[in-house]
Design a protein around this nucleic acid. Structure first.
Length: 423
DNA sequence: TGACATGATTACCT
DNA sequence: AGGTAATCATGTCA
């Protein structure tokens, strides 16, 4: 015999219980064996309530509630319900924390959407700014602040939505709890059941929260990809950076392979990353090799520029009463201490710039003005159409594979020997 | 708007 | 690991 049958059987003895027994489930159980007829009567009364008018039903309900056996009956019913229901669902109650929620939480924390406002996300923003390739002082900070602004927007939306969910959850929970408490007067609802119901509500709401977290994560991922996809966010290097790179390239034309140290120094000087320097040189080499003619003008431009810079530095050195050693000056406006190639640029000035075809180891101030006033400071390709008599064949082999026979260095005056080959 | 310039990426090579 | 060559994707300019 199960509890329910026993209880129903127990109801038969309601009339025979003393007041002292009321409220004691054991006393109810003691009444097993009382006529089943009484149970049927009570049940009929209960069922009949639905057929009665509201007032009558209320009155009858009140009468039943006031019945001396009601607390005992109620308690037994609660006990039975608790046993049966909890045994079915007890296993599900203690579910472990969802790994997906944990992942989402971790990500939101790492991205700075949840958790403390300041710390999180700045690393991602910095990465985004760095990947965008902008200089730290200009474009980089713009990218950075833009990223942060959008992240803050996401954060704000996330928190306001989360707050709404939490508020709705607590309101709904209170409502349900009140309802259950109210109902617990008339039907068997144990506190544990209410507790479990609260748990169910919280789980439902947390699944909604998970959706919110998921969509927030997606938004952050999209934002990140937009800012971190450097290809999408390609920015041309600024003029100064290009000049610095070109100066190095053309002053090391025979071996335009900067060492790691040189790359680092160039990167620092141009406010770009070392890999960007590598990219630039890779592109430059291949594009120069493919179309030397196109770059001839540029090469000469930088040759003149470098020579002029060198001359002014040299002149300054002379004025400072220093010994007039040809190579004592710097290697032009661009100086790299580690290249071991600093003298190379000294032979950069195109042959026609110093009429006699001598290596322009030094350009005096008077010559500098000559350079400045040259009718055509940047010789065109025609000037090098027959380069052999004038120009110095590049001794290195970096261009050989494609244009070995035609490649010349317009930057080397006749007879000049540079130290690039050692590089 | 199309052509060209240019920084980044990728596959492959040494 | 670093280079080349091809290619992509975006910026710039007439």
């Amino acid at each position: 015999m199960d509890d329910q049958t026993r209880m129903l059987a127990g109801l038969g003895g309601l009339g025979g219980l003393s007041h002292a027994d009321v409220g004691d489930p054991d006393s109810v159980r003691k009444q097993l064996g009382q006529p089943q007829q009484d149970i049927g009567d009570i049940l009929q009364q209960i069922m009949a309530i639905t057929d009665e008018s509201l007032d009558e039903a209320q009155a009858r309900k009140h009468a039943l509630n006031c019945h001396r056996m009601k607390p005992a009956l109620f308690s037994v019913l609660c006990e039975i319900k608790e046993k049966t229901v909890l045994s079915i669902r007890g296993v599900q109650d203690e579910d472990p924390p969802d790994p997906q929620i944990m992942r989402l939480d971790n990500m939101l924390l790492a991205e700075g959407v949840s958790g403390p406002e300041k710390g999180g996300g700045s690393a991602a923003a910095a990465a985004a700014a760095a990947a965008a390739g902008g200089s730290p002082g200009s474009d980089g900070s713009i990218e950075h602040s833009d990223y942060r602004a959008k992240l803050a927007q996401i954060r704000q939306i996330y928190h306001s939505e989360l707050e709404k969910y939490e508020q709705a959850c607590s309101e709904f929970t209170n409502h349900v709890m009140n309802l259950l408490r109210e109902q617990s007067r008339t039907r068997p609802i144990s506190p544990k059941e209410i507790e479990r119901m609260v748990g169910i509500i919280h789980r439902k709401f947390s699944s909604i929260q998970m959706q919110l977290k998921q969509s927030t994560c997606e938004a952050v991922m999209i934002l990140r990809s937009r800012f971190l996809d450097a290809r999408r966010k390609r920015r041309n290097f600024n003029k100064q950076a290009t000049e610095v790179l070109n100066e190095y390239f053309y002053s090391h034309l025979s071996n335009p392979y900067p060492s790691e140290e040189a790359k680092e120094e160039l990167a620092k000087k141009c406010a770009i990353t070392v890999s960007q320097v590598s990219n630039w040189f890779g592109n430059k080499r291949i594009r120069y090799k493919k179309n030397i003619g196109k770059f001839q003008e540029e090469a000469n431009l930088y040759a003149v520029k470098t020579a002029v810079d060198a001359a002014s530095v040299s002149a300054q050195a002379s004025q400072a009463n220093s010994p007039a050693t040809p190579n004592s000056g710097s290697s032009g406006s661009y100086k790299l201490s580690h290249t071991g190639d600093s003298a190379a640029f000294l032979g950069l000035c195109p042959a026609h710039l110093n009429g006699a075809g001598e290596a322009p180891l030094n350009i005096a101030p008077s010559q500098q003005s000559q350079v400045d006033t040259l009718p055509r400071a940047t010789p065109l390709m025609e000037d090098y159409e027959d380069p052999l008599p004038h120009s110095f064949h590049v001794s290195s082999s970096w261009q050989d594979s494609a244009h070995a026979s035609s490649v010349t260095s317009p930057l080397r005056p006749p007879g000049s020997v540079h130290s690039d080959t050692s590089n």
